[in-house]
Amino acid sequence: MTVQADTEAYIAWVNSLPLAASFGIKCVEAARGSTTMTLVASPIATNPNGAVHGGVVSALIDHAMGTTAMTVMTARAAPVTATLNIDYLAPAVPPLTLRTTVLRHSQALVFMQTHVRSGERLVDVGTGTFVPRADYLLDPTEATDDLPAYYFAPRRFGD
């Protein structure tokens, strides 16, 4: 499979996740170690000022980081959030753009950063640490057809 095909399949998989559908977040770009996601409008009630609730922003950042971490992790590993810190700089009024980057990674830890923008304005900065875990994933022989290949792929994203 080519990197382009990998990228398209990865984006489709991220966009098919239940949280993406429930919260309205969409992955629009992906590469090894980075993603860009957008939230055009929040399906969850906004604050009286039109901003997305801080707890929802936190969930969006965690989602963006977890799915981005998977682009650098070894096969049969899934990201588990160890730390998540958010600096709320200004109201997060949609549309929002979340740009997530892997800052550093090893087989034991993945360090992430997400910048959330409302238009050109930086409104939130998230940092997080993720632990790659494989001890609770299904054996490939037990997998159903609707589970993504990323849980079982024998290589990393883009390799």
Rank of each mutant, 00 (worst) to 15 (best):
V110G: 13
E142L: 12
V40A: 14
V116I: 06
H63D: 04
A20P: 00
H63A: 04
W13M: 03
R76L: 12
D146P: 08
Y150F: 02
T68A: 05
M112P: 13
A64R: 10
Y151E: 09
L138Y: 14
L147C: 00
T35L: 03
V72P: 06
Y151T: 07
Q4R: 12
G50D: 02
V3Y: 12
G24D: 10
G128L: 13
A64F: 09
A143F: 13
Y136V: 08
A31F: 00
S16F: 02
S42A: 05
V28D: 07
A45D: 08
Y150E: 08
E142D: 14
T101W: 15
C27K: 04
E29W: 01
G119P: 07
I61W: 11
A78M: 01
L98K: 14
V72Q: 05
N15H: 07
G126D: 15
Q113W: 10
R133V: 00
T129R: 01
A90R: 12
L60T: 09
Q107D: 15
R133D: 00
Y10V: 01
N49Q: 12
R133A: 01
L96V: 15
L147M: 01
D135W: 00
L137E: 01
Y88T: 08
L137A: 02
A20W: 00
A75I: 07
L89C: 04
